[in-house]
């Protein structure tokens, strides 16, 4: 049985800038994979390739053996890829519930079914009490939760979280961590881009480290923090040794 998601030799350049160079890794069903690396390492570009926003120049991304790279966001979303955005993109003229229903309508034409699905994922995301508030009135951590709820409503196989914990207070981040664990326990595989290492490392099962568009290394979180190459990428030569 193939892995759930295969990223194979993916390269993507924007003009003269190579955002991703020959990136390969697999993601197993049910794991939480951390995609880490310093700013400009190509994490968000890779997310955009996986979610179909952009097409890789070379290489292929496969979901359960089926190629999804280059098919566009619509096909990727239908196939089971959902995502959140680094800069929150809520539908601000709509209520929280209506936001989530947009996601739910990707699986049904019936408003009542979409409402029931919204009810379910709002509960998972801990937003039930805010369901009838305007999306723009939410606090930043609530907006992140809204994005997750909206993504979950599409019934994804894989959820891509782009800096979902960045900029939160420690308490908010901890409840975010719990939400991500809950999501995984519901059978959704999670790939997350994150900077906050002390929160990320205990949460993820495995990490892929990117630097300057390439895969620097991958492995278990506890091994990576001791890897001189990783320390060098983050802190410079002085600290690696």
């Amino acid at each position: 049985m193939p892995p759930l998601l295969e990223v194979q030799n993916v390269s993507k350049s924007f003009g003269g800038v190579a955002a991703n160079v020959d990136i390969s890794f697999d993601v197993a069903a049910g794991e939480i994979l951390g995609l880490i690396g310093p700013n400009g390492a190509g994490k968000t570009s890779l997310f955009n390739s996986i979610s179909g926003e952009v097409s890789p120049d070379r290489g292929e991304i496969r979901l359960e053996g089926r190629r999804i790279s280059g098919t566009g966001p619509l096909v990727c979303a239908r196939a089971g890829i959902a995502r959140t955005f680094q800069v929150v993109r809520s539908f601000d003229s709509m209520t929280v519930r209506e936001n989530v229903m947009v996601g739910a309508f990707s699986r049904t034409n019936r408003a009542r079914e979409a409402m029931a699905e919204a009810e379910r994922v709002l509960d998972v995301a801990g937003l039930s009490a805010r369901a009838d508030h305007a999306a723009y009135s939410l606090t930043p951590p609530e907006k992140r939760r809204l994005e997750i709820a909206r993504a979950l409503a599409t019934r994804p196989r894989i959820l891509l979280l782009d800096e979902m914990l960045t900029g939160l207070t420690p308490t908010e981040a901890q409840s975010g961590v719990q939400l991500i664990r809950d999501v995984r326990d519901q059978g959704v595989t999670v790939i997350m881009v994150e900077h906050v290492m002390e929160i990320l490392l205990p949460l993820i099962d495995r990490a892929v480290v990117l630097n300057l568009g390439r895969v620097l290394t991958q492995g278990l979180p506890k091994d990576l923090v001791r890897d001189p190459a990783v320390i060098r990428a983050y802190l410079g030569d002085k600290y690696a040794g």
Binding site: P73, R89, S90, F91, M101, F105, N109
Partner: peptide
């Protein structure tokens, strides 16, 4: 307003990129 179309259209109006990521055509 109460149908799938209405939700899709408002999503398109508010944020095209987010709408697309949710399989809105």
């Amino acid at each position: 307003e109460g149908s799938r179309w209405g939700y899709s259209w408002r999503a398109v109006r508010d944020d095209v990129t987010a709408a697309r990521s949710l399989a809105v055509r």
